[in-house]
Amino acid sequence: MPPLSSFTPPFSSPSSRASVVAALRGAGCVFAEDEAELILAAARTPDELADLVDRRVTGLPLELVLGWAEFRGLRVAVEPGVFVPRRRTEFLVERALAHVPDASVVVDLCCGSGAVGAALAAALGPVELHAADIEPAAVRCARRNLREAGGHVHAGDLFEALPVDLRGRVDILAANVPYVPTDEVGLLPAEAREHEPLLALDGGTDGLDVLRRVVTQAPGWLAPGGCLLIETSERQAPAAVEAFIRGGLRARLAVSGEWFAHVVIGTMS
Rank of each mutant, 00 (worst) to 15 (best):
G26Q: 05
A175W: 09
W221M: 02
P80N: 01
A131K: 02
G156R: 02
A123L: 06
E184F: 09
A192G: 12
H152A: 13
E128F: 02
E90L: 04
L62I: 05
G225V: 09
L64F: 05
A123N: 04
L4W: 14
A200R: 01
L120A: 11
E79T: 12
G81F: 00
V241Q: 13
L52M: 05
E194I: 05
V78S: 10
A243V: 02
D34M: 07
V177N: 08
F244I: 07
E37S: 13
T232S: 10
A190C: 04
R56N: 04
R55A: 14
Y179N: 02
R87V: 15
V170G: 10
A36C: 11
R212H: 05
P178I: 03
A149W: 14
G203C: 04
P9K: 07
E33H: 13
G248Y: 02
S15D: 15
D206A: 09
A23E: 04
L199V: 14
L40W: 15
A138Y: 00
V263M: 06
L129T: 05
V210S: 11
R147E: 14
H152S: 13
V82D: 00
A103W: 13
R169T: 15
P10V: 11
G150K: 06
G168P: 00
E63H: 14
I245H: 10
V76Q: 09
S113H: 04
